[in-house]
């Protein structure tokens, strides 16, 4: 399977994602944001980091870059798109995913390992069991997902909420919500389910030597 990782000035998780993809035998290429052509890819990843220093709003400037025009075209053709952390913020700013990511409710940058409840009824999570609890790292300042309550209901009905912050038993409520996100949302899909945006970092949990392998399920789901 062919993958492409987009690199912006300020991306800092691009190489971690590439290591994870290569571990699973993806044929990966890195593409600079000023490029105007994408290599043939089955998966495009927009990695985490602080593209353009988070100027204006996180992801706002990167969303207008040359390569993003091509990413949007690929997304509309059905290519799989994964945006992690700043990548999620960029997808939101392009309009490929609905809603907004506000500053964390407590106004603090949060770097923590958190439990997540997985909805596996999509291309990105099918190797997990439904409602499986996994532990991934979050590291962000703007992860407080906001949208209309109608949109949240719509996403719940269509099973578009892929990850929710929870405790280790799978309870989803305010006590286990690190950033104030509506409905404890940590990751969402578009209606066609070919685009996933998520604040937690699956690429950081792909080796037992580091912490755990809970992120591997996501990459192996995409692969098969």
């Amino acid at each position: 399977m062919r993958s492409t990782v987009i690199v912006f000035p300020g991306s800092n998780c691009d190489r971690d994602i590439a290591v994870a993809l290569k571990k699973l035998q993806f044929k990966n290429e890195m593409v600079w944001h000023k490029d105007s052509e994408l290599p043939k890819s089955d998966l495009i990843v927009i990695p985490g980091g602080f593209s353009y220093g988070d100027y204006l709003r996180s992801g706002a400037i990167a969303a207008k870059s040359t390569i993003l025009k091509e990413v949007i075209k690929s997304a509309e053709r059905g290519c799989l798109i994964l945006g992690v952390c700043n990548g999620f913020q960029i997808l939101i700013e392009t309009g490929l995913l609905k809603g907004a990511l506000l500053r964390n409710k407590n106004l603090k940058f949060i770097n923590d390992d958190v439990y997540l409840k997985v909805n596996n009824k999509n291309r990105f999570c099918k190797k997990y069991s439904n409602n499986q609890i996994i532990k991934l790292n979050i590291a962000h300042n703007e992860g407080n997902y906001f949208t209309s309550s109608d949109h949240v209901k719509n996403m719940q009905d269509q099973e578009l909420i892929a990850f929710q912050y929870s405790n280790n038993k799978g309870d989803v409520n305010e006590d286990y919500n690190p950033n104030g996100s509506m409905a404890n949302i940590a990751g969402i899909l578009n209606e066609k389910k070919n685009i996933l945006g998520m604040m937690p970092h699956p690429e950081r949990m792909t080796d037992k030597l580091i912490v755990n392998e809970d992120g591997l399920g996501l990459f192996s789901s995409i692969l098969n």
């Binding site: 204006l56 709003r57 706002a60 207008k64 700013e93 609905k98 809603g99 907004a100 506000l102 906001f146 949208t147």
Partner: peptide, 8 residues
């Protein structure tokens, strides 16, 4: 187009 995010 850029300066404001009309959702919020």
């Amino acid at each position: 187009k850029l300066l404001a995010n009309l959702i919020i």
